[in-house]
């Protein structure tokens, strides 16, 4: 999983497999960070304090 694991090899199989994995984890983490960060900013800006409970 990491280059310091001794079975690690710099070959195509590892690039594709673990590249795909880190890519997916990256997108998910970035998306989640964006949502949480923006929610914090929105809350500080006073959004969501006065809603009717029906968004969308």
């Amino acid at each position: 999983m990491f280059p310091f694991s001794f079975e690690w090899a710099w070959d195509m199989a590892h690039y594709v497999f673990l590249g795909g994995m880190w890519y997916a984890i990256g997108i998910i983490s970035a998306g989640l960070s964006y949502c949480i960060g923006k929610a914090l900013l929105d809350t500080v800006a006073g959004k969501g304090h006065d809603h009717g409970g029906d968004h969308h």
């Binding site: 964006y34 949502c35 949480i36 923006k38 929610a39 914090l40 929105d42 809350t43 959004k47 969501g48 304090h49 809603h51 968004h55 969308h56």
Partner: peptide, 12 residues
């Protein structure tokens, strides 16, 4: 409010 905003952003 935070949860409301979070849910809204996640939907987005």
């Amino acid at each position: 409010p935070f949860f409301h905003n979070l849910a809204h952003n996640m939907h987005e």
